[in-house]
Simulated assay, not measured.
Amino acid sequence: MSDEDKTPDCGTVLSEVYLYLDLECSETRRELIRRHLDDCTHCLHEYGIEHEVKALVARCCGSETAPRELRERLRLKLNDLVIDVESREYLS
């Protein structure tokens, strides 16, 4: 694991938040992301939003799970949205 992998930046953490929430990453990676979320108020705020959306979907859908292809398409769309919003904020 490289030094970059040991200390993930905000962009990496936010791009992996669904993997973290869905327990789809290694324990080592989960711990690194958790520590970053504990220390970074920006990411913690973003994570809180993501966590709330996930909780709402879970309440509405019960024990149903989305197909893997749908989850991946949504992840890509959300990543595009985050990049677009960040670009607009940078240009302002």
Rank of each mutant, 00 (worst) to 15 (best):
M1V: 11
M1D: 09
S2P: 03
D3K: 09
D3N: 04
D3C: 05
D5V: 07
D5L: 15
D5M: 09
K6R: 14
K6Y: 02
K6I: 08
P8Q: 08
P8L: 11
P8C: 06
D9V: 04
C10K: 03
G11T: 02
G11V: 02
V13E: 04
L14Y: 03
L14D: 00
S15P: 08
S15K: 11
E16T: 07
E16D: 11
E16Y: 07
E16R: 13
V17M: 14
V17W: 07
L19G: 03
Y20R: 08
L21C: 05
L21E: 08
L21K: 11
D22Q: 04
L23E: 15
L23C: 15
E24V: 06
C25K: 05
C25Q: 09
S26V: 11
E27S: 15
E27W: 07
E27T: 13
E27N: 13
T28A: 14
T28F: 10
R29E: 13
R29Y: 05
R30T: 11
R30S: 10
E31G: 01
L32C: 12
L32G: 12
I33Q: 06
I33K: 00
R35C: 07
R35H: 00
R35K: 12
H36P: 08
D38M: 07
D38T: 00
D39F: 00
C40L: 00
T41S: 11
T41A: 05
H42L: 15
H42Q: 09
C43S: 08
L44T: 10
H45T: 15
H45M: 11
H45R: 11
E46R: 15
E46Y: 15
G48S: 06
G48R: 07
I49S: 01
I49H: 06
I49F: 01
E50H: 10
E50R: 14
H51R: 15
H51D: 01
V53N: 13
K54M: 08
K54S: 10
K54C: 02
A55T: 06
A55S: 11
L56K: 15
V57C: 02
V57N: 06
V57M: 05
C61A: 12
C61Q: 10
G62L: 03
G62C: 08
G62D: 04
G62M: 04
S63Q: 08
S63I: 08
E64H: 04
T65L: 05
A66D: 03
A66M: 05
A66F: 04
P67I: 10
P67S: 03
P67D: 06
E69G: 03
E69M: 10
L70S: 06
L70Q: 07
E72Y: 13
E72F: 14
E72R: 15
L74Q: 04
R75T: 12
L76V: 14
L76I: 10
K77V: 12
K77Q: 14
L78H: 12
L78D: 13
L78T: 11
N79I: 01
D80L: 07
D80V: 02
L81D: 06
L81I: 15
I83S: 14
I83T: 12
I83Q: 13
I83F: 02
D84C: 02
D84T: 12
V85E: 13
E86N: 06
E86S: 04
E86M: 00
S87N: 07
R88E: 03
R88G: 10
E89P: 07
L91G: 00
L91H: 03
S92C: 13
S92P: 10
S92T: 14
